[in-house]
Design a binder for these strands. Sequence first.
DNA 1: GTTGTCAAGTGGTCCAGACCACTTTACCAG
DNA 2: CTGGTAAAGTGGTCTGGACCACTTGACAAC
Lengths: 250, 250
Amino acid sequence: MASVNRHSYVPLYLQIARTIEQMVRSGELQPGMQLPSEREIAEQFSVSRVTARQALDELVSGGIAYRVQGRGTFVAEPKIREVSGLCSFSDDMRSQGLEPSSRVLSQKIVPPTDEIRRKLKLGPDDLILQLDRVRLADGRPVAFERASVNIKLCPGLENDDLATQSLFALLRNKYDVYPEWAEAEIEARGALAEEAGLLEMGIGQPVMVAYRMTYTEEFEPIEYVISVYRGDRFTFYVGRQRIPSPFEGE
Amino acid sequence: MASVNRHSYVPLYLQIARTIEQMVRSGELQPGMQLPSEREIAEQFSVSRVTARQALDELVSGGIAYRVQGRGTFVAEPKIREVSGLCSFSDDMRSQGLEPSSRVLSQKIVPPTDEIRRKLKLGPDDLILQLDRVRLADGRPVAFERASVNIKLCPGLENDDLATQSLFALLRNKYDVYPEWAEAEIEARGALAEEAGLLEMGIGQPVMVAYRMTYTEEFEPIEYVISVYRGDRFTFYVGRQRIPSPFEGE
DNA sequence: GTTGTCAAGTGGTCCAGACCACTTTACCAG
DNA sequence: CTGGTAAAGTGGTCTGGACCACTTGACAAC
């Protein structure tokens, strides 16, 4: 360690953070072990303490390290796995070693329902792309998805091939639309007849239903998705989170 | 605004952040509106720009605001609701206007299974407190919970009353144990006979099962909880999250 | 009108220092 | 041996600058 490229476009604090992250990933630094102190990092990389601290901030906010005042900064326990269910189905499956694919059931421009119009903040005459897909992992159906996409952000999407490529990848690469935020609610219920047929399961068998909104950096609604997952073939991971503290007065 | 107490124990940046947060909550600042720039805040509160920036950092990491380089900092869209399912059942229910209560089925010191021993990082002779509870909202059963608590952190907990008070509250107030981190996986399945009986529902009716680990600040395992929620009476909220970007090289 | 340029304003990064709050450890006095 | 204390080391907060990257809008040149 102890080396940093002053002429790179990558900020110093990121270079340092990545260097340390690499040491954690490689196992050189084990969970619970103490990281170099801010002052040590500053000296070893020849940067100010502010920059060293910013590097550690990066690791802390990424859940890779945690601080204890008066003692030091330490390597955090590894997460069970990365956030799941919020981002791309494709990435999700691949990270679990499964091969994702899709069967497009319908892909057409339609007027939105009032609820969707409200959720996507559309005007009275705006249309949406309604995309119905069955998502498969290693060829077996896992989920049925109905995505309502704000077509204003990606005119022409109705003619793109969404069976073989990820919607997110297409949005990013072709339409310069970058999904940055997502939130979702999840509930469980029995499979309806139509869902059961598509997912090759029995009616009333348990499914998980996720209602997800996706936004750009600036909270422009991109899509609203209702996903119906087979209960026996999918697990949601709710990422490691800070537990909110009870109120503290001054 | 424009006032800050230099003699408070509350850091300046937090005072500023809370002042602005209050303006957002009160509706004085609407979603999408621009916040004062870092330099403006620095001037108005008579602090350095670093401190002003730190205040905005606080709002950004809390999901209350977001930045756009070159344009400014803006008020974020309000979240659907706060994180749910990860923290205290009691707080969760109350935040939805329901009155939480518990029925303790069993509360005893037992040797852990191998899986629990591993998850809680216990030694071969360590014991756990196994706490089985039915959780109710407005008197109606919503969930069955089996908590395996690392009793080393809270000796004597087996004799405390857990029907009327929150486990987290007890840990914090009586045992000085502060749950700070949690992560969970969620799946859906049909209710087993025992669960169905406790939750007053039919066997095979959909339930959501959450497997949750709770840790202290320093990732000491506090408890491992398996919660079985009635599908028709509970919805998980997966907090608003940043979508991970695809890899960017230098 | 269109296009290009430039200035102003924003957040992003960085520096060299300062003092405070907290934890740990070593050591000394009892 | 016990208990208190002081020192060293840690992260936490804060200052007052500096320059860069990016966006926007006004304005001049075409």
